[in-house]
Structure formats: C-alpha cells, structure tokens
C-alpha cells in the first residue's frame, strides 16, 4: 500500500507488527512494534502511546532517507484475552 502512494509523490510512514514481512516489500519509512493484529497504534484508550507512535512517525518523515528505514519502538500491549 505504501509503495503505490509513495510513487504518487506522497511521503508515507507505516506501522507494522510483522517486521519480517515488511522487510520483503520495502516501504520507505516503518515504525516496528511487537504488537498483535488489530491494534497498530497500541492499546485502546492509550492516548499517550498513540501520540508517541505518531510522533515517532513524524520524526521519521522529516529524516532525509534514501532506502527503507525502520524505527523499532519499545512499546508493549496490555493483555486482552488471547493476545
């Protein structure tokens, strides 16, 4: 998804919880977190975590990059049932 949008001239940043899969498709700016499906911005209601993740994305958007650049973020999810 990032590839098509970036080709149109829009700077993108994307989140992922599967660093291994994202490395195959090579989008330019990636925020990698050890999350689970369904919560790319972390725990519901955790505004502070959401803002920290988004602001890490803003920081990455302002970097001069020329190839895939991944920022690993240390956030963790709360336990919810199976996850």
């Amino acid at each position: 998804m990032a590839r098509g949008v970036e080709e149109a001239g829009i700077s993108t940043v994307c989140t992922t919880f599967r660093r291994d899969i994202i490395e195959l498709v090579r989008p330019p700016r990636v925020l990698s977190m050890k999350f689970a499906p369904g919560r790319p911005l972390g725990n519901p209601g955790d505004k502070d975590m959401q803002r920290k993740i988004i602001e890490a994305g803003f920081e990455l958007l302002q970097k001069d990059i020329h190839d895939m650049t991944i920022t690993d973020l240390p956030f963790r999810l709360k336990k919810f049932g199976l996850f």
């Binding site: 998804m1 098509g4 949008v5 080709e7 700077s11 993108t12 994307c14 989008p27 790319p40 958007l61």
Partner: peptide
C-alpha cells in the same frame, strides 16, 4: 490489484494536495 488500487488512491490524494500519509496495516 492492491498495488494498482493503492496507486489510484495515491494519485487522488496527490491531486487534492496531500503531502503525507500515515498508514496503519492491521
């Protein structure tokens, strides 16, 4: 088809003056 449709979305966004996109794969 996903790549082609993301290109279409990108073109539409570009035409409307969008500079940056925040992507959240689930």
């Amino acid at each position: 088809p996903l790549l082609e449709n993301s290109r279409t979305a990108g073109r539409r966004l570009k035409e409307s003056g969008v500079d940056i996109a925040f992507l959240t794969p689930t």
